[in-house]
């Protein structure tokens, strides 16, 4: 990519030798500009992974001063044969599959509602965005207080209207749905703003045309609005799905993986292995397994997305990245 080729030759020296030198200079400049950041990122991603690999092939235990031995694939074997690994994997997936579709649904509702406001839309939108700006720790303890069985407001309201409330985070059946509820509360705003952007991008003349053709509001929604929102929903789904593997903070505050192991997802299980029991070998192996799972999972999802909307929105995978800016807060 020669970028400076646009510069008129009359101004620059027209001789090709100097142009070549110019190009070499440009190349070197590119390298100098990119190098610090790339070197930093490269070192900091390779170095820990090297340590991870080292730990995962040895009997590394922080608490016990036994000599570190090479155990080969032993750690991987013990992880894969441990039922707790499989239960935490399924909890992670169940969590994502409960939370993300509901976020899309509620987010769509909110986006449609907000789109109907011409006055005050911006201020309402930014108020709805508050949860996703908050630290997950703050979200976690707000809900911990809100759902407290004794002095929390929600349960006394529920009792007031004659419903006997569940024990939320401390009941084995309700703990996971509680975490899902909290995740929905925090991240629906993200889906909402993505879909709101989608709605704003539909030109008004589309609606006028539909009206002229005699389509009613429901028909317009199903045949025009929804299809136009599909790429936005896909992006929101992919990003939220990938992000739901990161959920840790609200578990730490609300359930600590309990009761029992009923809310122990992969992230929490890894933390527990590493920093609860100091079994660094096993925790390292689990991290490597997650890395592999996620790499392939993400690649598969992105390939799917790319294939799906190849036609108009060839920017879809790019958009996926772009949208990551709002996610992962």
């Amino acid at each position: 990519m020669s970028t400076s080729a646009v510069i008129p030759n009359a101004v620059r020296s027209p001789r090709s030798a100097s142009q070549k030198r110019q190009q070499a200079q440009e190349k070197r400049a590119t390298l100098i500009l990119l190098a610090p950041a790339l070197l930093f990122l490269f070192l900091l991603s390779i170095w820990p992974v090297a340590y991870l690999l080292y730990a995962s092939f040895t009997s590394y235990q922080l608490a016990i001063p036994i000599p570190i031995e090479w155990v080969g694939l032993g750690n991987f074997e013990s992880i894969v044969t441990n039922p707790r690994f499989w239960s935490s994997l399924s909890i992670t997936l169940v969590f994502a599959l409960m939370a993300v579709p509901l976020q899309i649904l509620v987010g769509l509702g909110l986006a449609l509602l907000l789109n109907g406001y011409s006055r005050g839309r911006e201020i309402y939108t930014s108020l709805f965005l508050i949860p996703m700006m908050l630290a997950p720790i703050v979200v976690g303890f707000s809900w911990n207080l809100f759902l407290n069985p004794i002095y929390g407001p929600l349960n006394s309201v529920l009792r007031g209207v004659g419903i006997s409330p569940p024990a939320w985070a401390s009941s084995p059946e309700w703990a996971l749905p509680t975490l899902v509820l909290v995740d929905i509360w925090q991240w629906t705003p993200f889906v909402m703003i993505v879909l709101l952007a989608g709605l704003r991008s539909i030109p008004p003349r589309v609606f006028e045309a539909a009206k002229v053709d005699g389509s009613n509001r429901m028909q317009t929604f199903i045949h025009i609005v929804l299809p136009m929102l599909v790429p936005y929903m896909t992006v929101a789904f992919v990003l939220r799905f990938i992000d739901s593997f990161k959920v840790f903070d609200i578990i730490y505050i609300l359930t600590r993986g309990g009761p029992g192991t009923s809310t122990q997802n992969l992230a929490y299980y890894t933390y527990d292995l590493g920093f609860g029991r100091f079994e660094f070998g096993a925790a390292g192996a689990l991290s490597i397994i997650q890395l592999i799972l996620l790499t392939f999972g993400t690649m598969a999802i992105l390939a799917l997305v790319k294939r799906r909307d190849k036609a108009p929105a060839s920017a879809a995978p790019a958009a996926t990245h772009r949208l990551a800016e709002g996610s992962a807060a």
Partner: peptide, 8 residues
């Protein structure tokens, strides 16, 4: 996810 590199 940050949990992956954190042990490293």
């Amino acid at each position: 996810p940050p949990i992956v590199p954190v042990i490293g």
